[in-house]
Design a binder for these strands. Sequence first.
DNA 1: TTGAAAGCGCTAACAA
DNA 2: TTGTTAGCGCTTTCAA
Lengths: 334, 334
Amino acid sequence: MHRKTPLITDVAKRAGVSTATVSRVANSPELVSPATAQRVRQAMQQLGYRPNGFAKALITRSSRVLGIVLPDFFGDFYSELLRAADTAARDAGYHLVVSSDARAGSEDVASSLPLNFLDGLIAFISFPDPSLLESVVGLSNSVVLIDSGEHTHDVDRIRIDNASGARSATEHLLAQVPASRCYHVGGPSSNFDAVERATAFAATLSEHGASPASNQIEHGEFSAAWGYAWAMQALEAQPSAPVAVFAANDEIAFGILQAASVLGIAVPERLKLVGFDGARLSTITMPELSTVQVPLDEIGARAISLCIERIRAPQSPYRAVTASTRLIVRSSSR
Amino acid sequence: MHRKTPLITDVAKRAGVSTATVSRVANSPELVSPATAQRVRQAMQQLGYRPNGFAKALITRSSRVLGIVLPDFFGDFYSELLRAADTAARDAGYHLVVSSDARAGSEDVASSLPLNFLDGLIAFISFPDPSLLESVVGLSNSVVLIDSGEHTHDVDRIRIDNASGARSATEHLLAQVPASRCYHVGGPSSNFDAVERATAFAATLSEHGASPASNQIEHGEFSAAWGYAWAMQALEAQPSAPVAVFAANDEIAFGILQAASVLGIAVPERLKLVGFDGARLSTITMPELSTVQVPLDEIGARAISLCIERIRAPQSPYRAVTASTRLIVRSSSR
DNA sequence: TTGAAAGCGCTAACAA
DNA sequence: TTGTTAGCGCTTTCAA
C-alpha cells in the first residue's frame, strides 16, 4: 500500500530504456526519437514520476528559485511589487521565495532565506543598514537591490525617482496654495525614500522663494496612524484658509483624510492633499487621492529580469535602473 | 581574483581533518573534540564556507523549506496569517516559500511552487475547487489544508469556526435593532467562509422568529468596493430608524463605512456595523469597527506545527483543528 | 574521536 | 539515437 517515490531508474526500467534517455526526454526531448519519448512519457505518467529537485540542482547548480526580501508584508505597496515580481519570475520559468526582513529581526538575510537553494536574490532596502547591505552583497548569489540609498558596492540596482515625483506634487500644490500653508508629512527620517521626498519638497519651496518653517516638514512613519496624529494636531488650529499637504505615502494621506473627516475639514475645498505610491489604497479613499505613482509593476518585473540576466552573465557590467514617478491628480487636490 | 565557492573538502584540508569531521562539526558537534571543532570552525569562517544545500538535502531528504499557498496576497487577512506562519516556521528551523493561487492562474499548485524543494505544504483553500484539492492532496509532501469546505480526503485540516462568530455578531445586532432591519452583506457565494457566515446569520434570525427577506442577505465579494456599492443602493432609501449590518469581512465593512459617511448616515447612531476578521484594518477605521476576530496568528502557527508534525510522523492519524472566533464590540455598533 | 568510502538521484560527457 | 559511466557536494555507516 505504501508506494515510495518513483525514481528515474524505475521509469527507465518500465520504459525499457536507460536513465539517460529518461533524463533526455525531460530535458532535451529533441535528442530522443518520438517513439521512445512517447514510451518514456507514458511510464512517467503511470508511475507519477517527479524528478528529485535536489539531485537535479546539485548537478545543474540551479534551482530556478529566486528570493525576494522586503521590509514588510503589510500594505499595498509591497503586495503589488510582489505580484509583479512573481508574474515576471513565473514567465521566465522561475519560482519566487519571499521573506520580510521585519520578520528576520536583527539576524542577517542569510538566515531569513533558504539561500542555499536560491539562484538569485532581490532585496528591497529602505534604511541605511550597512550590515544588511554587506550580508546581501557579499553573497555568491546574483543580487539585485531595490533602494534609493547611496553606496559604492558593485551590484545591480533599481532606484525610485522620488525627487521628480515629489517636485511635481509640490508644484501642483503651490499652484493652488501659498507656500506658507504647504506642509509635508514625511515618513521615517532614516528611510531613503522618505528623505528624498522631503528634500524635494523643501527644494521646490525654496525655488519658489519660500524657506519652509520647521513645522512645515515633519517626519514620522509610513502609517495612517502617523498621518492621523499629525493632522489632528496640525489642522485643528488651522485658519479657514485652505491648506495643502503632501504626504510621503498614501497610507499617511489616508490617515490625514480620516482626521479631516473628524475635524470637519472639507477635502479638497479646505485641504488639498497628495499622497505617494499610487497603490490600491489611493483609489478607494474618499475623495479619491491624488498621488505620485510609483511603477510597482515595472520595478518588480525589472528586478526579476536584472537578476536573471546576471545569473546568465555573472561577469557583465553592473547596471543601475531608475524607475520614474509621475503625479496623478485626483479629487483630493483640485 | 575570482574565488569560487569553498567546498567541504577545502575546509577539511585547511583544518587538517577529513570531510566527515567537518560535516560532524556542522551537524552533530557533540561527536567532535572541542579542539578539533574549534579548528574546523575557524577554517569555515576563514573560507566563508556555506554547505551546498542541494547536496545536503539530497542525502537528508529534507530542505527544511515549507510552502504556503494563499488565495491572494492583498489585504491584511493574508498578511497577518503569513506573518504568523513565518514566525512559527522560523522558530522551528524552517523557511517559508509563499505562493498565491490567484497568480498561479488555472495551472495547478504543482507549477506555482517549487514543490521539488519543499518538505511540506500549507494550502488555504476558499473555493470548492476539486482539481486544486486533488493536486494538493495527491502530493507526496506533507500537506495541511486551511479551509472550511467539506471533503473526505485524508489530510490535516484547520477550519475557521465561522458559525459561532457570525451568530454572536448577529445576536449582538438583534439586541439593538429589530430583525427586519438587520442585513448581511456577504462575500462570494462560492466562498466557504462567506457561505457559513451568511448561513449563520440567517439561522440566528430564524431563531428569533424572523425569516430574512431576500434583500437582507446579499452576496458579493470580499472588497470595500462591494460594501460601498451595496450601501449606496441599500442605505440611501433607508428610513430614519436605525439599521444593523453584519458584513462578511472587514473590507466590506470598510466600504460600508465610507458610503455611510458620504450618505451622511451616523455610525453607530443610525447604522450599527459589525465586520469579520479582526485584521489590522478594523482598528484604523472611523469609528473603530466591531468585528469577529479570527485568530490569524493561531491559525498560521498551528498550520506550521501540524505540517512539521506530519513530516516527523507521516503515518500518524490525520487531525482537524477548529479555530474559534469571537466578537469584539467596538464603537461602530454600540 | 576520527577517517575511508559508499552512495543520495540525477545529468552530461563520451562511446557506441 | 541510445547507453555507459563518472561524478555533483555532502552525510553517514563502518572501521580503526
